[in-house]
Amino acid sequence: MSGTADHDALRVESVSHAFGAVQALKNTSLTVKRGDFVALLGVNGAGKSTLFSLITRLYDNVSGSIEVCGHDVRREPGPALARMGVVFQSRSLDISLTIRQNLRYHAALHGIGRREAIERGDRVLERVGLLDKGESKVATLSGGQVRRAEIARALMHDPTLLLLDEATVGLDVRSRTDVVDTVRALVESGEVGVLWATHLFDEVRTTDPVILLHHGEVLAQGTAGEIAGDTTLSDRFLAMTGIDEREIAA
């Protein structure tokens, strides 16, 4: 099977995953269309990072199927990974290199040569508002700048699917807003589908497609407004899971 523009950016069908006796994901299905900002909501341990690891082939999915732009990640990992940009929960830039050097390294890992990497680097840095920081060592950047640099890196190879795992954790309010706005601006271009994993309900808009994940199970899918109904999304989530509000903040 070869991917075309008609395929969804991401399609996950009936995926389960266990670590020994611990079932981390149970029969999970979801879709991310191009131009969608899909929020994957769940508290710590819900299975969000496990799902990301399966999509990115860090773990092997032994049940169900995962397709990126029509490419099955198990059977065609190369084309699938080539269309995917990832911002992991833990920082993954090389702190001993400058932002531009990190971008060039990432570009090389996607087969993009030096000259093209420089051009693309300028473009993506401008997009995330870091053009003037290109020569700065990552170690000297603030948390928000690092996150935006990671987003720039994820965009270097023009992905169709952008995965962001708790991209705003540990950031102050202003940096959080900057990061969310940057990603939403990308989505508005219509070329990229975003799967945004978070436990912070205030990052989700009423019209965003939302997947509520808890203990590895999808509890609800729909727009945030549909799921919330006549209450707030977080109240609905608390009612569905029976967990304490403080666990969300943790």
Binding site: A82, R83, H110
Partner: peptide
């Protein structure tokens, strides 16, 4: 375009990039 880069020329670029990064880190240390 994306799939074109998955061939051997793209692999050579990737190999060069990995060696380049190792060389930079080595020069810094």
């Amino acid at each position: 375009m994306t799939t074109d880069r998955l061939g051997w020329s793209g692999r050579f670029v990737a190999l060069s990039g990995i060696v380049w990064r190792e060389a930079i880190r080595f020069a810094q240390q």
